[in-house]
Amino acid sequence: MKTRKTGKAITIILTIIVCIFALFPFIWMLSTSFKTNSEIYNAAPSFIPKEPTASGYINMFTTETSTFNFKQWAANSVFVAFLTTVFSMIIAVLGGYGISRYRFRGRGALSYVVLTTQVLPGSLLMIPLYIIMGNFNLLDTKTGLMLAYVTFTVPFCTWMMKGFFDSIPISLEEAARVDGAGTFRCFATVVLPLTVPGLVSTGLFAFINGWNEYLFASSFMQSYGNWTLPVGIASFKGQYATDWGTLMAGSVLITIPVVILFLGLQKHLVGGMTAGAVKQ
């Protein structure tokens, strides 16, 4: 009995240590974003800002120079991430349903291809895509960047949607068919409404991907006006290496929406990623 109590205490202490390790940088970012510069450049750092200031946040929204425009970058990020989501979802919903419901020739091969594309290195795809997009005048455009993102969001979203469709009993569709509904009507009125949670989490996954991506965005988007948030905020470090308060304020603004989405989505994301590997 005694050993069990010490065991429990050790567990809780270790858990607290792991949580501190996980959270510390996040808390440090929040804390720094409200500090004045003089406090940030103090050799003895403080955890809670002594004179909290929102000037970093104000700077983020009010500074507009030829090389820095947070609002523009945010608009670009929203635009690219949103289009990536819509485009990937239309394809993934149809494709996922096709793979889930039909037994057709090449089904196994197609499943393998969809899974394999998830491991293709972006660094490899980037090289031919740069040339191909250049030929179509899509470099340094948001449409081009969105199309590049589709290369890796479509396979993953298709796989996630296939999983969600798999979990809907086929008998429901059969019942609708008996009532005379055609394939597409059945799909739109019976199946899709049942997959709303799946649609939402898969869609948000695509959105987060488009929101966070850095490699393609930094290689394809040359003009400041077309940058997305990750590229913009990373460049900010080089240009104004000193203004950490503003930089952290920007980081908080980029991170908060994603953290909220993640916490809401975690169960579905894990489900999609394990793809049958974890026994249910």
Binding site: F26, M29, Y214, P230, K237, W244, I254, V258
Partner: peptide, 20 residues
């Protein structure tokens, strides 16, 4: 829930915080 947070932080942002 808390342990997941590092996974959710965008890579670029994570790098900036650690640089600081």
């Amino acid at each position: 829930a808390l342990v997941i947070i590092p996974w959710a932080v965008p890579e670029v942002v994570a790098c900036l915080v650690w640089m600081l």
